[in-house]
């Protein structure tokens, strides 16, 4: 088992121990991440409860279409990431490379769409400090009572910090994926040494989970105008 020697670090007894440690280490890190995002989710929840109308009004102006497409893009990247782990474990090098590259591509698509969305927000004067028009918020149609521009701004700040932090995590993840591609091309990711793919996969899926919650919290809060072709049944409480 000469390959094992290169794979096994000096301070571990065996591969099983090393694998378990790597996965567990990543899980602990993810616990940390839960609390990082948890802290801002808590702040968001408090202001969401405090200023419901303002938050719903701001949410209505966000681009639900891009947000939803991005969700699907990100979920697809999670699928390809999961397939990469599978490919490594069964030793299919070509499939591994394809899946990793697809994951990177989907991640880049997500970030690209995000940039487009940010730019649109900018053009629509939805960026506090940079481009924001307080006056337009005092008269909005379809909202029960006019809202406070400052509180709308608060919602938008949360939107940028939360999506920005998420995007930063995506960028880190892309860097890790590129490293995985290099390793894979050198043939270093094998059924014996598959942990790097598994561990980075855990991270990638976690970033996906964060987005799963960002979608309803930021984009889908409040009732939206349905596109005309979509049948919406009336609901009465």
């Amino acid at each position: 088992m000469s390959t094992n020697h290169a794979v096994l670090a000096h301070h571990f007894e065996n591969l099983e121990q090393q694998r378990e440690t790597a996965a567990f280490g990543m899980w602990i890190f993810l616990a940390t991440e839960v609390l990082i995002f948890g802290a801002i989710f808590t702040c968001y929840a408090i202001y969401r409860l405090r200023y419901p109308l303002d938050f719903e009004a701001a949410s209505a102006r966000l681009n639900v279409l891009i947000g939803s497409i991005n969700t699907i893009v990100l979920l697809s990247s999670s699928l390809t990431m999961a397939l990469s782990v599978h490919a490594t474990r069964v030793g299919r090098q070509q499939m591994l490379l394809t899946c990793l590259l697809l994951t990177i591509l989907l991640g880049a698509t997500f970030l690209g769409l995000k940039v487009v969305e940010y730019y649109q927000d900018y053009k629509e004067k939805l960026v506090p400090v940079l481009a924001f028009d307080p006056d337009e918020w005092t008269q909005i149609e379809g909202v029960e009572a006019p809202v406070q521009p400052q509180r709308v701004q608060l919602m938008l700040v949360f939107y940028y910090i939360m999506t920005g932090l998420h995007a930063a995590h995506m960028i880190v993840g892309m860097g890790l994926l590129i490293w995985l591609v290099i390793e894979a091309r050198r043939g270093l990711l094998t059924p014996v040494r598959y942990m790097p793919v598994e561990v980075i996969g855990l991270y990638w899926h976690f970033v996906d989970i964060v987005w799963i919650f960002l979608l309803p919290l930021l984009y889908l809060t409040g009732t939206h105008q349905a596109p005309p072709w979509l049948p919406i049944p009336p609901i009465h409480f």
Binding site: P52, P216, Y219, T223, Q225, P233, I235
Partner: peptide
Amino acid sequence: SFLELGPWHT
């Protein structure tokens, strides 16, 4: 999110 759910959306 297109349904009229009032405060229950979130």
